[in-house]
């Protein structure tokens, strides 16, 4: 069964987009890769509305106090195996928000992370290659 899921994931990964405490920029770039210039839907990558439908989580923005428990709940709701793809420098190492009183730290302390895509924001090409690399590793 896990193999069947993996096979499905590789052919057409459905992604759910979680914005923890982001500045919107990675989020609009994620939406951007769905629009005509990049159009990732031709590769079968679809943005879905519920974590329960998703194969991969695209996480953006730093984790703060209010979003940490909720992001973890979203992760629990996602059927396993699922990929966690960190988009943006904020998700990789908390960026310039590290000294803040409200920021709890990078994602890999709380979640198993598969791919890091640094950049502020990463270019759409970088995001696509990140997802492709994650799939190639499976």
């Amino acid at each position: 069964m896990a193999n069947a899921k993996l096979w499905g994931l590789k052919k057409s990964p459905w992604v759910f987009h979680v914005a923890a405490a982001s500045c919107n920029n990675c989020d609009i770039e994620i939406l951007d890769i769905l629009t005509p210039r990049w159009d990732v839907e031709r590769f079968g990558i679809v943005l879905v509305g519920s974590p329960r439908h998703a194969d991969a989580l695209l996480v953006t923005g730093v984790l703060n106090r209010k979003s940490l428990p909720r992001v973890l709940r979203v992760y629990e709701q996602t059927p396993k195996p699922c990929l966690v793809i960190c988009v943006g420098t904020c998700t990789c190492d908390t960026h310039m928000f590290a000294p803040s009183y409200n920021v709890v730290g990078p994602y890999d302390k709380y979640l198993p992370v598969d791919v890091y895509i640094p950049g502020c924001p990463p270019k759409p090409e970088a995001m696509i290659i990140g997802v492709v690399k994650a799939l190639a590793r499976l």
């Binding site: 405490a21 209010k66 909720r70 310039m96 000294p99 803040s100 409200n102």
Partner: peptide, 22 residues
């Protein structure tokens, strides 16, 4: 309040040139 990152606090710990990036 899900997006609070403490910008005003961080701005007081950075130089004027850094704050523009913040």
């Amino acid at each position: 309040g899900y997006n609070h990152r403490g910008h005003e606090f961080l701005a007081q710990k950075m130089t004027y040139d850094q704050v523009t990036f913040l």
